[in-house]
């Protein structure tokens, strides 16, 4: 849970709180974009898809802005221990959040393409995947901002289900395209959407891993694979 003890220099507390506030805001915008992009895809809502593409500039601006703020604090304060971990991890987390925003844009672009084609309807597994990934992004963000290790571990556990659904969607689409060569072009777009959403889940996993690193002080990434 968050360290409630304050710094002797109260301005430092305010600076760290500002970083926390900004990354939370960035995460909320990117999460909302992803949610809206999945909704736009399911309903082929091109107006919504276009709005999402416009919102990406906000996320990009916040990424640069947060990086700059962290650089200034590191230069000014030479932070140590949990403060150092927090700032370094924020600078990594903004990259993942920015990528989640990009994924929402990618999904929206595919929605625009699909709206012109004959392949209609939504895939149940794809919607389910979207819902799980969305929960992972939101909870991964919350775990990071609130230093909630338990929630972060929950997020990590959800990825297996995302992977299972992704494999299912992929196989279904291959089968469909085999039977209907006329929709191959559009089927590839849907496969891309599935891949993008699965990737967003990976970025949410990164956020959860940063949360654990922030709390425990050791890097648990790639456990057993490095």
């Amino acid at each position: 849970m968050p360290d409630l003890k304050s710094h002797t220099d109260k301005i430092f507390d305010k600076e760290l709180a500002e970083v926390s506030h900004r990354i939370e805001r960035m995460g909320t915008i990117a999460g909302d974009m992803l949610a809206a992009s999945v909704r736009a895809f399911n309903t082929r809502n091109t107006t919504l898809a276009r709005e999402i593409m416009d919102e990406d500039t906000q996320v990009n601006r916040l990424e640069k802005n947060i990086d700059q703020l962290c650089l200034e604090i590191i230069a000014k304060r030479q932070p140590m221990a949990s403060d150092l971990r927090f700032l370094v991890l924020v600078m990594k987390a903004v990259v993942d959040i920015e990528r989640i925003g990009d994924i929402a844009v990618n999904v929206s672009e595919r929605t625009m393409d699909l709206s012109r084609g004959a392949l209609t309807g939504s895939w149940e597994e794809l919607s389910e995947m979207g819902a799980i990934v969305l929960s992972m992004v939101r909870d991964g963000m919350r775990a990071f901002v609130e230093s909630d290790e338990v929630l972060a571990c929950e997020v990590l556990k959800r990825d297996a289900e995302v992977d299972r659904l992704f494999v299912k969607v992929f196989a279904d689409l291959i089968e469909l395209m085999g039977n209907r060569p006329d929709v191959i072009n559009l089927g590839i777009h849907v496969q891309s959407v599935a891949k993008w959403i699965e990737r967003a889940g990976d970025h949410a996993m990164n956020l959860a891993e940063y949360a654990i690193f922030r709390v425990k002080g050791h890097d648990g990434r790639h456990a057993g694979r490095s």
Binding site: K5, H7, T8, M80, A81, S82, L84, R85, G217, H218
Partner: peptide, 19 residues
């Protein structure tokens, strides 16, 4: 010590939360 101290008192001192 400077990235992940074990003792909370060390953490508080090096992060300037002492006192």
């Amino acid at each position: 010590i400077f990235t992940s101290p074990r003792d909370q008192r060390t953490e508080d001192y090096i992060t300037g939360k002492f006192g």
